[in-house]
């Protein structure tokens, strides 16, 4: 078991060029948002002595006064943030095409990455669209009846505990279903690399998933769990750091970027595990 994990880790690590590429794309988009945010904040409170107060930690009054006075700041940052996320999602189809084909063929070069990404992009796009539709249908099947039947939740449920646990249960069920679809889509994409035929690949992907369901499912759930743990660790470790010195600011940025890199490595580890 441990040998397998070490072997997969090693394969994932060997994909460091792909990891850095994906990280680089995320970093560029993140930096765009960061620069926009900096400019907006600087324009609003950049010459205020209140910044000294903010250096010692979060101060709600400073942010709320800024937003009250310049509500457009938040709207601007929000819209750019959403735009960058959508842009990354579109790019991620291409990035996945290169990454998955590299993992499948055992390639590690960036040249091969781009070459295969170019080859498989449209087929992967079709898989993504099909899986997206499936995900929407599954979510609708789970949630629409809930919202239709629930009425006024405070009137319907004797105790909010029932409501809270029902919602938690449905969220977990949704996640479990989405993991199945996601695994199917990843396995289908691996088959596309092998067979180059969409429907046949999707069929093969499904068969493979069913034949090794427990194994794949553990990998899928583990991957999600690791992402949750990483986010929790991040908020625990660095979310409340101040900005007393340039060193703390720099340390914060380095720590943040380490977390980002680890997240991508974990994803590549997951893909390698599914491939194995």
């Amino acid at each position: 078991m441990w040998n397998k994990i070490i072997d997969i880790s090693s394969k994932a690590t060997k994909q460091w060029k792909s990891i850095l590429l994906i990280y680089g794309v995320q970093l560029v988009l993140g930096s765009i948002v960061a620069v926009i945010a900096y400019r907006q904040f600087n324009g609003a409170i950049g010459s205020s002595l209140e910044l000294d107060r903010l250096a010692n930690g979060f101060d709600r009054s400073i942010f709320s006064d800024m937003i009250n006075k310049f509500p457009v700041i938040i709207e601007h940052i929000q819209s750019r943030f959403a735009l960058m996320v959508v842009l990354f999602l579109m790019l991620s189809i291409f990035l996945h095409a290169g990454l998955l084909s590299n993992i499948r063929y055992g390639y590690y070069s960036i040249f091969k990455y781009f070459q295969n990404a170019n080859i498989y992009f449209f087929k992967f796009l079709k898989v993504v669209l099909i899986s997206l539709i499936l995900k929407i249908v599954v979510l609708a099947i789970i949630w629409v009846p809930f919202f239709m039947l629930i009425g006024d939740p405070l009137e319907t449920f004797h105790s909010e505990k029932t409501l809270i646990f029902t919602v938690i249960g449905l969220v977990i069920l949704s996640a479990l279903c989405l993991i199945v679809i996601w695994l199917w889509s990843v396995l289908s994409r691996y088959h596309i690399v092998d067979e180059n035929r969409l429907l046949v690949s999707m069929k093969s992907g499904w068969r493979l998933l069913i034949s090794n369901f427990a194994r794949y499912y553990i990998v899928g759930c583990g991957l999600i769990l690791l992402h949750v743990i990483i986010t929790w660790l991040y908020t625990l470790v660095v979310d409340d750091w101040g900005a007393e010195t340039w060193f703390t600011v720099l340390a914060l940025v380095i720590m943040q970027q380490l977390f980002s890199l680890i997240r991508i490595w974990i994803r590549v580890f997951g893909y390698s595990a599914v491939n194995d």
Binding site: A34, L51, M84, V85, V128, W182, Q256
Partner: peptide
């Protein structure tokens, strides 16, 4: 005339990092 810009960098960096995290999370859907 000598503003302390460090908090601005900090919060801008935080927003940038959250974009990276959200991008990574949502790309599970793709």
């Amino acid at each position: 005339l000598d503003p302390n810009k460090k908090p601005l960098y900090k919060y801008a960096a935080k927003l940038g990092h959250w974009l990276q995290a959200v991008s990574q999370w949502t790309s599970f859907m793709m």
